[in-house]
Write a protein that binds this DNA or RNA. Structure first.
Lengths: 195, 195
DNA sequence: CCTACCGATCGGTAGG
DNA sequence: CCTACCGATCGGTAGG
């Protein structure tokens, strides 16, 4: 379908050149159609972008829910490691989607800030809700430090976001090593040493 | 001086709207001059941007060197805490410079990628060199875990970059708390527990 | 999905 | 530091 083709090429261009740095004509060229055809499928460049952002966010929530089911009841360490593993897979095989999300979560197009922010708040709340029970159980079982759950979750977000930034600086194999090394230290910091 | 005024306004606009999202005319308007006047001071929009990027990077290196002198010989913990404190001050009082750096380090304008990358490599090498002795001493004195220095430094970069990303999501007071909390856990992960 | 088209704006130059 | 200007491209529309 042409609509999907447009989305596919638009996402790649938005990742590499940014929203403002990508013209509708360029997207059309990559999709082998005329620029005007894009307006048969999308109201505007803005709507095309927002449709992509929405897709990516929903995909991420679906992935997390599925992943959570897969490791059901195996404990917080397994869950976090699986998220990290998934994260690595994403960067290795679906780099563009991963970068599209982060780039526009942190630096959205100026005119669309309000709309991306709204989607983002919805996303982050869901994400937190999905993880909270596992963290709570980890603390209860004495696997994690006896700290407020928000503190532990914030630390995990900080760690995961930091890794994401590092993925922009390092090549893949250096990055994999960095993930392995920093995970070891991070886990050390949140686990319960009395246990 | 008009040249400085142009730089000042350009930086702010590049932060909020991105390089491609900011027009030369817009910069001129904010600086209260005509667009053509910008070309009396800069060869091109590209050169204006690169001059800003260079400035910001040099400023950061100068800050780190100065800060290092200030805490000379007080040990790795004090040094890292001071860097973090400095980081918070930067976000509180020089937000635009801080964001300009990170935004363009991670997502540079497509056409200028090579040039920003070259500046960046220079910067990160210097930064690492400045920190390495303090990490080495920390390990030697048994204050830090007996791990490879690169591993400990990478963990610190991951932590610092993660905090940077969080600063985009949280308001200042929530952010300050997050810095405090995550630092506590991070330090726990790299210190030597035998000591 | 295309041709043909539009007003607005883009980065940049000439010449003073 | 300005006026006057330029070719190219922008996002988008009409009409088929």
């Amino acid at each position: 379908m042409t609509k999907d083709r447009i989305k596919q090429e638009a996402l790649i261009l938005f990742v590499h050149k940014g929203y403002e740095g990508t013209s509708v004509a360029e997207i059309a060229k990559q999709a082998n159609i005329r620029a005007s055809t894009i307006y048969a499928h999308f109201e505007s460049k803005e709507q095309l972008f927002l449709s992509l952002f929405d897709d990516v966010v929903n995909e991420k929530l679906k992935d997390l829910a599925e992943l959570k089911n897969r490791v059901e009841n195996k404990g917080i360490k397994e869950l976090l490691q699986t998220i990290l593993h998934n994260h690595l897979e994403e960067i290795e095989h679906h780099r563009d989607q991963a970068v599209f999300y982060k780039r526009n979560a942190i630096f959205p197009p100026e005119n669309l800030k309000d709309k991306t922010q709204a989607i983002l708040i919805f996303y982050e709340e869901r994400y937190s809700q999905l993880l909270r029970p596992a963290f709570a159980q980890g603390v209860k079982e004495g696997i994690l430090r006896n700290d407020p759950i928000e503190k532990l979750q914030t630390a995990f977000y900080c760690f995961a976001d930091g890794l994401y930034v590092l993925s922009h600086y390092y090549d893949l194999s250096t990055y994999k090593k960095a993930v392995h090394d920093t995970w070891e230290l991070f886990w050390e910091s949140i686990r319960n040493k009395q246990g």
